[in-house]
């Protein structure tokens, strides 16, 4: 059962309370509770307050009202960063999930060597967020890089994929698609839950593979697809390392790889404009929450729950 199913159950109100162990619970939860106050929820609230100030870590925060939030509306570099981030999320996540589902379908149903394939496809998911792979990407898509060398073998002239503002973002999208292994494993687990008798019955009734896919696999897999979609969108919004390394920390060329998180980092930790960075952080939270809410709303129309 996934975290999302849990939330659905909580909303319906499943758990019945019997005898209470409040004191024991307090001690077991003490570290977690301290974390909630100091590390997670506390800072979220604090960053809301900091959003109304000008603060550079040296002088005490100065209240400036809604200035930072007004700046969010007029900051053109930020709007560009939003465009870049939205493009990245909306292009790379569907492509990544399509690859994950496609390969999972190929692997399903007792293909020989499944564990080996699964490992090979999963490995990039573990490596993908590292600085080392970003370094590799910088070379592979560079002017003299591997991609252009291979294209050269076929007589195609390449270009500096990363130094060209038109293609720099695409290389990062390719990188995210490359890490399709972890949603693939979730798909595989979901596919295994679908009883084989459904397909046998459909085959006896003369249903084609195509209609079996759309009428059995997709409906029964839709909760898994939804889960992957929510998760990968949230992940993609938080991408940072790859854009940072590939662009040398600038978000270039011409701000074409300026992810929202990278812009936030620059404002907060290069220019030490902590007030504005806080406002940006809150804005990011709202954007992610809005995307997730839309996802949950849209799920009513396409996600099929068996229970």
């Amino acid at each position: 059962m996934s975290a999302l199913d849990e939330l659905r159950q909580l909303r319906r109100g499943g758990v019945q309370v019997r005898k209470r162990d409040n004191r024991a619970a307090f001690w077991f939860l003490a570290p977690w509770f301290a974390g909630l106050v100091f590390i997670t929820v506390g800072p979220v609230l604090a960053s809301f307050a900091l959003g109304f100030t000008k603060y550079n870590l040296i002088q005490p925060p100065r209240f400036i009202g809604l200035d930072n939030f007004a700046r969010v509306l007029s900051d053109e570099r930020l709007h560009n960063a939003l465009r870049v981030t939205f493009t990245y999320v909306l292009v790379s996540v569907p492509l990544q999930l399509a690859c994950a589902l496609g390969v999972a379908l190929l692997l399903d149903r007792g293909l020989r060597g499944l564990p080996l394939y699964r490992s090979a496809f999963y490995l990039p998911s573990l490596l993908g967020s590292s600085v080392a792979i970003a370094v590799l990407w910088t070379q592979v898509f560079g002017t003299e890089g591997l991609v252009n060398r291979v294209l050269g073998l076929f007589g195609v002239e390449g270009r500096g994929w990363i130094s060209d503002p038109d293609t720099a973002l695409s290389t990062l999208i390719v990188l995210n698609v490359w890490t399709f292994g972890s949603p693939m494993i979730i798909f595989l687990a979901g596919l295994r839950q679908i009883p084989a008798v459904y397909y046998e019955a459909a085959a006896i009734d003369g249903a084609s593979r195509w209609s079996q896919f759309w009428r059995i696999t997709m409906p029964l897999l839709s909760p898994i697809l939804f889960f992957n979609l929510v998760l990968q969108i949230i992940h993609a919004f938080q991408s940072f390392t790859q854009a940072f390394v590939v662009s040398g920390g600038t978000g270039g060329p011409s701000d074409s790889t300026m992810f929202y998180t990278l812009y936030l980092y620059q404002q907060g930790f290069s220019r030490f404009d902590m007030g504005y960075a806080s406002a940006l952080a809150w804005f990011l939270l709202l954007i992610i929450a809005a995307f997730t809410a839309v996802n949950f709303w849209a799920a009513k129309y396409w996600v099929f729950y068996d229970d």
Binding site: I39, T40, G42, P43, V44, A46, S47, L50, Y55, L57, I234, F237, Q238, F240, T261, L264, G268, F269, M274, A277, S278, A281, W282, L284, L285, I288, T292
Partner: peptide, 13 residues
């Protein structure tokens, strides 16, 4: 689902 970027500034402070 809380992104680190949302809490990093006050946490850093």
């Amino acid at each position: 689902m809380l992104p680190i970027h949302v809490i990093i500034v006050p946490q850093y402070v």
